[in-house]
Design a protein around this nucleic acid. Structure first.
Length: 764
DNA sequence: GAGTTTGAAACT
DNA sequence: CAGTTTCAAACTC
C-alpha cells in the first residue's frame, strides 16, 4: 500500500472527538489561543474480524485482541469552533465538509466508512493554525474486553447524540448538549463505519484486516504522513460537501429508507447499505433504553487520563477496598489502594459497560468519579506545591499557557484545554445529578470543624503568618501542614498524620516519615495507633443534624437531636476553653459532659449546661452554620477575589473527601485553590459556570449530612449503640468519664460505621 | 522570629 | 488509671 492510499484512508477515517460539540465547547471556552491542530488518535482495539465462512469475514466488536483501528485527524481552529455548533443545523454545515476522490480499490472500501455518501469525507477544515497539541481519545473499547455490551453501548450513545444534535438550534444550545451528546455520535459514526466495513467485505471482499492493520501502522508510526494529510485535507476541503453532523443525523433514516444512498458514488457497489441495516438497527433497538451513558463515557475518558498522572497525598483507607468490593462487581478497584495496584482497566470497564439501570450507571460513575477526582485533587495540589517527584508528567496548572506538547502526551495538563476539560467535568458531574450524595453525609460529619475551612483561597502553605490567618478563619484541618521536629510526623501530634494526610511541601517538618515514600511505615504506625485507640483518626468533632436520615441499608433512623460535640471532650485548665488550645473551641463546638475542663467559658456552649439554650439550638444552628457559612464563604471569597470564581463549598467538598484514612475530609483547600486558579484563568465561562454551581450548591444543601454513629454524635453520657457496617469496626467509646466504665464493663461492642472514602454507590 | 503557653498525645 | 513527659500548635511579644 502506498502512501497516498493510506492518506486517503486516513482522511476518510476521520476522528470523532474533534467533531464533537464537546470539544467545540471546550475550545470555545478557552481563553488561551485556540488550538490549531488536534492530533486525535482513536483506537478501536477491540475490533476484530472473524470470518464464519472464511471468505466473507464478519465484523465483531468483542475483544481486545483484534486489529487496531486507528483514526487520526487534524485541524481544529476557531472556525470549526464557531461553525460546528451550527453544523447540527444542516443549513450551515456545508462549509465543514468536503469530498474526497477515491481511486484505489481499497479506497472504495474506505468510502463505506462514511455515513453520507461514498464520496463524503468528514474532514473539517480549520484554517488557522496557531497551536498544536495532541489528544488521545481514550481507548475506551480497548478496555472493554469481552464486553458483550460494547456495541450496544455505542449505538445507545449515538442515538442520544443524534437526537441531541437534531435538536440543536443555536451555538449555545449545542454547547450545552454537547456535554451530553458529544461522544455519542462519535461512536455512532465509528460503529456505522465498522458495520459498513463488514458489509463491504462481504460484497467486495476487501482485505480489511490488512487495510486496518496498515492504517494503524501508518497512523501510529508515521507522523509525516499525518502532516501530509493536513495539507491534503486543506486542499480537499475546498470542496464543501455534506456536513459531518448532518450526515450523522441523516444516517439512521438513510439506512432504513434508502440503503443505497451511501453507494451513490460507488460504482462497484461494494458498500451495500442494505446489508447492514439489520445489525445496526438491532443494536440500536437493544440500546434504546440506555441513552444516558454520556457522563460515564465522558468522565471515563477524562478520568482515565487523570488517573494515569495522578498521585496520592492522602493515606490509604484500609477498609475502602473491602467496602468497594462489596458494592459492585466493577468497583473492586475503586478504593484508593486500587490506584497503586493498577486497576485502571477495571475502572475503565466500569465506565464502558452499560448497566441495566441508570442507577447503576450512576453508581458506577460516582464511584469512579470520586476516585479520579481524588486523583485530580491530589495532582492539582502537587502541581502547586510538589513534594513527590515520582511522576514524570505533572499537571501544571500554573503554566496553562505553557508549551503544548508535540509528543504524545495524552491529555497533557500543560494544555489549557485539559484544564478546561477538567473543570467541565467537575461541572458536568454535579450538573448531572451525579452528586456524591451518599458521601456527602459522611463528608459533613467528617469535615473537620467548621465549614469555612474549605475556602481554598485562604490557604497559603508558605507563610506561618498566613498559617495563622488560616487558622483564624476556621478550624481548618483542611490545609494541614505541620512543623514537627521530633515525632517524624508519625504521631498524632502531627496534624497531617492525624488528619490522614501525607506531609507536603508547605510542611516544615523535620525527618518526616509521613510521606508516600514511607507509606509502609506510615501505615504500620497508623495501625499501632489505632490498636490503642480505634477512633484515634476519627474526626474530633462530630456533627449531627436533626434531619431524618436514611441509612445505607435504607432504614430510616430516628431523629437524633444530638449536638455537635468533640468526640472526646477537652481537658482545658487555663484557657477556659476560650482559645484554640481547646479542641472544642477550635472545632467550633461547645463543651459537653465529656469534657473535663475547668472554668469552662466556651462560647459555643459550656459543659455545665449554663448555656443550655444555646445547646438546644445548636443542632439546627450547627447545620445552618455548616450550610450558611458556605454561602458566606463563597460571598466573602468572591468579594475578595472578584475575578476568581470560587468553587462552592459543596462542590469542592465531595472532591476532597474521596481519599483518606477513614473517609475523613482531607485537603479541602488543596483542591479548591488550584481549581480556583483554574477557574480564574478561564474567565470567559466564569459567570456561567459559577452561576450554575451555585444552583448545585443549593441542591446539595438538601442532602442530609450526618450518618455519624450515635456513640460519636452523642454528648450524653450513655447512649445506645446500634451500628453495623460491612466494614464494622470496633471502637472505643468516647473518652467519657461516666460512660467509659459502664460501657467497658459490659460486653457490648461498639461499632463505628466505616465511612466510605469515596462517593457512595447509591446515587441518591 | 523567638519565646512562652497550652493541652493533647504518649509514655511510665 | 493517674501522673509525667513529650510534643507541636497556639499564642505573645
Amino acid at each position: 500500500m502506498d502512501t497516498p492510499d493510506k492518506s486517503q484512508i486516513y482522511a476518510t477515517s476521520l476522528t470523532k472527538f474533534e467533531n464533537s460539540p464537546v470539544f467545540n465547547y471546550i475550545n470555545s471556552l478557552s481563553p488561551i489561543e485556540p488550538v490549531k491542530s488536534i492530533h486525535t488518535e482513536l483506537t478501536f482495539s477491540s475490533v476484530t474480524f472473524a470470518s464464519p465462512s472464511s471468505s466473507l469475514p464478519s465484523l465483531q466488536i468483542s475483544s481486545n485482541r483484534g486489529s487496531r483501528f486507528s483514526l487520526r485527524r487534524h485541524q481544529w481552529t476557531n472556525s470549526s469552533i464557531s461553525e460546528l455548533p451550527h453544523s447540527g443545523n444542516e443549513n450551515t454545515s456545508e462549509a465543514v465538509s468536503e469530498g474526497v476522490q477515491h481511486s484505489d480499490p481499497r479506497a472504495e472500501c474506505v468510502e463505506c466508512l462514511t455515513p453520507g455518501s461514498s464520496n463524503e469525507m468528514f474532514i473539517t477544515e480549520i484554517p488557522n493554525k496557531q497551536l498544536e497539541m495532541e489528544i488521545e481519545i481514550p481507548k475506551l473499547l480497548k478496555y472493554d474486553s469481552g464486553s458483550p455490551n460494547s456495541n450496544i453501548l455505542l449505538h445507545n450513545l449515538t442515538d442520544a447524540g443524534s437526537e441531541i444534535l437534531g435538536t440543536m438550534t443555536s451555538p449555545v444550545e449545542s454547547n450545552k448538549v454537547s456535554l451530553e451528546g458529544g461522544h455519542l455520535f462519535e461512536r455512532e459514526l465509528h460503529l456505522r463505519k465498522i458495520c459498513r466495513i463488514q458489509k463491504n467485505e462481504e460484497v467486495a471482499g476487501c482485505e480489511w484486516v490488512a487495510v486496518i492493520s496498515d492504517v494503524a501502522d501508518v497512523f501510529t508510526s508515521n507522523s509525516s504522513i499525518t502532516e501530509d494529510n493536513i495539507e491534503e485535507k486543506d486542499e480537499i476541503s475546498e470542496d464543501p460537501g455534506k456536513s459531518f453532523i448532518s450526515s450523522v443525523l441523516q444516517l439512521p433514516q438513510e439506512e432504513a429508507v434508502d440503503p443505497d444512498n451511501e453507494d451513490s458514488g460507488d460504482p462497484s457497489g461494494s458498500c451495500k447499505q442494505s446489508e447492514m441495516i439489520g445489525p445496526v438497527t438491532q443494536s440500536e433497538d437493544i440500546a434504546m433504553d440506555e441513552t444516558d451513558q454520556t457522563p460515564a463515557i465522558l468522565s471515563g475518558n477524562l478520568l482515565d487520563k487523570l488517573q494515569q498522572r495522578s498521585r496520592r497525598r492522602c493515606l490509604v483507607y484500609e477498609m475502602a477496598g473491602v467496602h468497594m468490593k462489596k458494592s459492585s462487581p466493577y468497583s473492586n478497584c475503586s478504593s484508593s489502594t486500587s490506584f497503586r495496584s493498577g486497576c485502571r482497566e477495571a475502572n475503565i470497564e466500569k465506565h464502558l459497560v452499560p448497566s441495566k439501570t441508570g442507577t447503576n450507571n450512576l453508581s458506577s460513575m460516582s464511584s469512579a468519579t470520586g476516585l479520579h477526582l481524588n486523583e485530580l485533587e491530589t495532582t492539582l495540589n502537587d502541581g502547586m506545591a510538589s513534594r513527590h517527584e515520582t511522576v514524570a508528567s505533572r499537571m501544571q496548572l500554573t503554566s496553562m499557557a505553557g508549551s503544548i506538547s508535540s509528543s504524545k502526551s495524552y491529555f497533557s495538563f500543560q494544555n489549557p484545554l485539559t484544564t478546561d476539560y477538567l473543570f467541565l467535568f467537575l461541572f458536568l458531574f454535579f450538573h448531572s445529578n451525579l452528586v456524591l450524595r451518599g458521601n456527602e453525609n459522611t463528608a459533613m460529619e467528617n469535615a473537620p470543624q467548621t465549614s469555612t475551612e474549605v475556602v481554598g483561597y485562604e490557604c497559603d502553605h508558605s507563610s506561618p503568618q498566613k498559617k495563622r490567618h488560616k487558622s483564624e478563619h476556621a478550624g481548618s484541618e483542611s490545609c494541614k501542614r505541620c512543623n514537627c521536629r521530633r515525632s517524624k510526623c508519625l504521631k498524632l501530634y502531627c496534624e497531617c498524620f492525624a488528619a490522614g494526610l501525607y506531609c507536603v511541601e508547605p510542611c516544615s517538618c523535620q525527618d518526616c516519615f509521613n510521606q508516600l515514600a514511607h507509606e509502609g511505615i506510615v501505615l504500620e504506625t497508623r495501625k499501632q495507633i489505632e490498636s490503642r485507640n480505634p477512633i484515634a483518626f476519627a474526626p474530633k468533632v462530630i456533627r449531627s443534624t436533626k434531619c431524618e436520615s436514611v441509612t445505607e441499608f435504607g432504614e430510616e433512623t430516628k431523629r437524633t437531636p444530638s449536638s455537635a460535640r468533640h468526640k472526646r471532650g477537652c481537658n482545658c485548665r487555663r484557657s477556659s476553653c476560650l482559645k484554640r488550645y481547646c479542641e472544642c473551641f477550635q472545632g467550633g463546638v461547645g463543651c459537653s459532659f465529656s469534657c473535663r475542663c475547668e472554668g469552662c467559658k466556651n462560647t459555643f456552649g459550656r459543659k455545665d449546661g449554663a448555656d443550655e439554650t444555646k445547646f438546644e439550638g445548636e443542632d439546627s444552628e450547627a447545620v445552618k452554620n455548616d450550610v450558611g457559612s458556605c454561602d458566606d464563604v463563597v460571598k466573602q471569597s468572591e468579594e475578595k477575589h472578584p475575578d476568581i470564581p470560587i468553587i462552592p463549598y459543596e462542590i469542592a467538598r465531595p472532591i476532597i473527601q474521596v481519599s483518606t484514612f477513614d473517609g475523613k475530609l482531607t485537603k479541602s483547600c488543596a483542591l479548591a485553590e488550584p481549581c480556583a486558579q483554574l477557574l480564574g484563568s478561564l474567565e470567559t465561562r466564569k459567570s456561567k459556570l459559577f452561576g450554575r454551581m451555585l444552583q448545585f450548591k443549593a441542591c446539595l444543601r438538601a442532602i442530609p449530612e450526618d450518618e455519624t454513629p450515635e456513640i460519636l454524635k452523642s454528648s450524653s453520657p450513655i447512649r445506645e449503640v446500634k451500628l453495623a457496617s460491612p466494614n464494622s469496626k470496633r471502637v472505643s467509646p468516647p473518652h467519657h468519664q461516666l460512660q467509659s466504665s459502664a460501657v467497658r464493663h459490659s460486653n457490648r461492642k461498639l461499632v463505628l460505621i466505616s465511612v466510605p472514602p469515596y462517593p457512595s454507590l447509591n446515587p441518591l
